[in-house]
Amino acid sequence: MAQHQVNYLKDGGLPVALTTIDKVVNWGRSNSLWALTYGLACCGIEMMASGASRYDFDRFGTIFRASPRQAELMIVAGTLTKKHAEFIRRLYDQMTEPKWVISMGSCANTGGMFNTYATVQGVDRVIPVDLYLPGCAPRPETLQYGVMMLQQKIRRESASRAQKPKRLL
């Protein structure tokens, strides 16, 4: 007990910090972004590298979850085919609010080099996207930077009012 005694004379006297609910909630949300494992193509390898020990997403609180019910961030890493489009929409709908989407790499952004009949020309035709990452494939540093940018975006949002569900329609 004695060794953890609070010095009431330091830092204004009391061990109390004042802030707003918005800031605390957003602080919690932005620093525990659980991402859905959504590796669709070669960008998925970079996403896995970002999650593994060398780049270590855990220190941002970003932990990959295999279930949409436990995830609030969807990192679309790779080429979205037209056959798969309905499933990405279903998984997005199954995620709980609030939820965010990062479109990772050229293929997810615009269809990339796959200017063909079988590729969706940008995932934003199917689900709303918060952040677009350029690159083919983006390096793990880019994805880390993108997640940090998304954290900033989340902290700017208002946490108290009910979030409007983001829909294309």
Binding site: A85, T116, R125, V126
Partner: peptide, 14 residues
């Protein structure tokens, strides 16, 4: 680059 069916496939379906 696909016919009209292919171009609107994901939109029509979802």
């Amino acid at each position: 680059q696909g016919d009209e069916f292919a171009a609107w496939y994901e939109v029509d379906k979802i």
